[in-house]
Design a protein around this nucleic acid. Structure first.
Lengths: 221, 221
DNA sequence: ACGCTAATGTACGAACTGGTTCGTTACTCA
DNA sequence: TGAGTAACGAACCAGTTCGTACATTAGCGT
């Protein structure tokens, strides 16, 4: 049966550490996101790779370290996107809106990342805490927000007393929840927060919300 | 050894279905919240109860149904709180703020509930979908919000074009994220979103955000 | 008093799961 | 060119885990 195809198996390089490692990471990301940390099966990850379980332990050491590696790679992607963002030429209001939209779009485009973060929170972020890569360097988004906030206050546009980290939390909460809780929210309230024809609505809603908060008229303290 | 204590074991009723059932539910809630659905161990739940694993299967049928029962009970609690809320005597702005604070406080007070919902989302809300209790009747909060929104618009206070379900999503997202993602957020940005001395700050921030959004001046459409 | 059933406890097992052991092969570089 | 090493595969193992078969008893109704 399969003996006939054996020669065909030799397509591409048979030995390619980088490729094998990358493929394990990709499949592991899907499997962890699908079933949770405990629910994910090392055997299942191996089976969906063109290599074996042995290689997972060879390259990563174990399930725990594999999950950490998956997290590190996922966070690297969003940091890359945030780092690429250039809002220097925009006025503060437009800049905040642009940043909010970038966050919105990234959450929209990476539901697996959202699930991984949810899973990591269930486990009290112990993998992130143990990872030097993740716990040390912080998000570029914070610096961007900080600069925009300063400019907005100098120009008298922003009145809210809020710092960059808290504003980031506000923006993230909306984007994250919309994706992370879409299943329970949909089941309970009959509304799909991630429906295609509502995406623009929520994107606008987020921007309106943040700008309204930052620019609201406030009684003198 | 233990033979001496055997008579003492007879304190309280030995046969009490309601009590046994309730105790299983309570311990199961903790265990599922702690370790996730797959990570939770039926043996562990049984061990922390004053009964045995046999009873879990006797009363609930299995791990899956037990988890569903845990979810149903948890949602019943928040619906109770929402149903008890009376904002009829408040003006729309104060009423929204009051509702937001109730949501905020409930999330703050029930971190286990948040974890269970996160876990249920990892599993695509399949338990909620299968539960008639949960998928049928909807939250009282939506009705409350709807009435407040109507009043606020009639009085010309609210300008935002938003319906009750989306506003509920906005409020929930902030409250939920603050608790659900506190571990990853804390590890990555060095800020504890649930620190005691910041609670009032975030409570106010939520109210300000929602009111600012609802009352913002908007260019004529 | 007593029988009947709901309620409970014990022990066990089949299937699974993370991790390892042992052996093989492709590639490289002296 | 051939020896050394990185990369790889198959089979295996020990510890778990959900679920159940079987035995037992408390307590209610009559």
């Amino acid at each position: 049966m399969t003996t006939v195809e054996e020669p065909a198996r030799r397509e591409g390089r048979i030995r390619d550490a980088a490729r094998t490692k990358a493929e394990i990471l990709k499949v592991a990301t899907e499997e962890f996101a699908r079933a949770g940390y405990t629910g994910a099966r090392v055997d299942e990850i191996a089976a969906r790779t063109r290599t074996t379980k042995r290689m997972i332990y060879y390259y990563f050491g174990g399930k725990e370290q594999l999950f950490t590696a998956v997290l590190e790679r996922s966070y690297a992607v969003i940091r890359q996107a945030e780092g690429d963002l250039d809002v220097g030429h925009l006025d503060p209001v437009a800049a905040i809106r642009r940043l909010a939209e970038l966050t919105f779009d990234h959450h929209e485009a990476h539901p697996d990342f959202i699930r991984l973060v949810s899973i990591e929170n269930i486990h009290d972020a112990e993998h992130i805490a143990a990872s030097e890569t993740l716990s040390s360097l912080n998000s570029p988004a914070i610096d961007v927000i900080r600069r925009i906030l300063e400019a907005g206050r100098e120009q008298g546009l922003f009145t809210a007393e809020v710092d960059a980290v808290d504003l980031h939390a506000m923006i993230s909460s909306f984007c994250f929840f919309r994706v992370s809780n879409r299943h329970t929210f949909g089941a309970l309230f009959g509304r799909d927060l991630t429906a295609d024809d509502r995406r623009e609505h929520y994107r606008t809603m987020l921007g309106d919300m943040v700008i309204a908060y930052l620019t609201a008229e406030r009684p003198a303290a």
